[in-house]
């Protein structure tokens, strides 16, 4: 069975922003960090586990969606999300370091 390209691209974009969101939330919200620790004994393992489950769930939810021929646009959004998401994480820890 061939994978659905739209579901793959959307799941990847969704999971990138989920990781960015969980990273920032884990730093500013102690209850959320505790929840991650309770979930998987370490907050980082919790984030990874949630990311994997979210990726699979998003893909399964979208796998019947109509595919687009314009996968280059999807790839550009993925690349943009990685660059912007990575920068947000880096800048967050940069300002956090200089503020503490």
């Amino acid at each position: 069975m061939k994978p659905n390209s739209k579901a793959l691209i959307t799941s990847t974009i969704g999971v990138i922003w989920l990781i960015v969101g969980m990273t920032l939330l884990g730093e500013v919200s102690e209850p959320f960090k505790s929840f991650l620790v309770q979930l998987a004994s370490h907050h980082w393992v919790g984030k990874g586990g949630i990311a994997v489950v979210a990726f699979v769930a998003l893909y399964l939810a979208l796998k019947k969606s109509k595919e687009s021929e314009d996968i280059l646009r999807g790839a550009l959004i993925v690349v943009g999300s990685v660059i912007l998401g990575g920068l947000i994480i880096f800048l967050f820890f940069l300002q956090h370091f200089f503020r503490v």
Binding site: S5, G86, F90
Partner: peptide, 20 residues
């Protein structure tokens, strides 16, 4: 945290190669 992006990008690459 940024490392966590990599496995999903890898799966996306393989998935597109398999799809098309």
């Amino acid at each position: 945290h940024v490392f966590l992006f990599l496995p999903f990008l890898a799966i996306l690459t393989w998935g597109l190669l398999k799809r098309y």
